[in-house]
């Protein structure tokens, strides 16, 4: 009879930070020799939207609610996509052009789960998590982004 190793509880790391997101540290955290797929998403402040230039984004959160929501989403994603570990880090405050506002990393035994988890998570984060972005344009205008 083959010995079966019981499925481990997925590891989850949720973080809101006002510092630049430390990707190398997250890569170390995600390491798991029993997974064959490590997938990452990095959301970055874009310079141009159409012909309008962005100088920076500034993020604000209702931190206790956002943390709770991100943890719940990570737990759901881990079940849905058979992830063994998942890290979600969102930066708050000013995020200059070219720097990451959000990083999601996850791993699963095979590629399908880890790859599918990323858009699933981003769609839900953008729809429901209590975080707001204010866009600062080169012409001096700044406005809260209200997706429709």
């Amino acid at each position: 009879m083959t010995a079966r190793v019981p499925a481990a509880q997925p590891r989850i790391h949720i973080e809101l930070t006002d510092q630049a997101i430390d990707l190398p540290r997250l890569r170390v955290w995600l390491r798991d020799v029993d997974t064959g797929a490590h997938a990452w998403f990095e959301g970055v402040t874009r310079r141009m939207t159409g012909d309008r230039q962005t100088v920076q984004l500034a993020y604000e959160a209702f931190a206790p609610m956002a943390t709770k929501q991100l943890r719940q989403l990570a737990q759901q994603a881990a079940m849905e996509f058979e992830l063994r570990a998942i890290a979600i880090v969102h930066r708050l405050g000013v995020v200059p052009v070219g720097e990451a506002s959000i990083v999601i990393g996850c791993c699963s035994a095979h590629r399908v789960g880890a790859l599918a988890a990323l858009p699933w998570l981003m769609d839900r984060i953008k729809a429901d998590v209590a975080i707001w972005k204010q866009e600062h344009f080169a012409d001096g205008v700044h406005q809260w982004v209200h997706p429709t």
């Binding site: 209702f62 959000i102 984060i125 209590a130 972005k133 809260w144 209200h146 997706p147």
Partner: peptide, 23 residues
């Protein structure tokens, strides 16, 4: 988040959440 007919308990924390835009 609660729906429109949710009965708000005494002492609960209330927060108005404008459209979110994280990520």
């Amino acid at each position: 988040f609660v729906g429109p007919s949710f009965s708000v308990p005494a002492g609960a924390e209330l927060a108005l959440i404008p459209p979110v835009s994280g990520g």
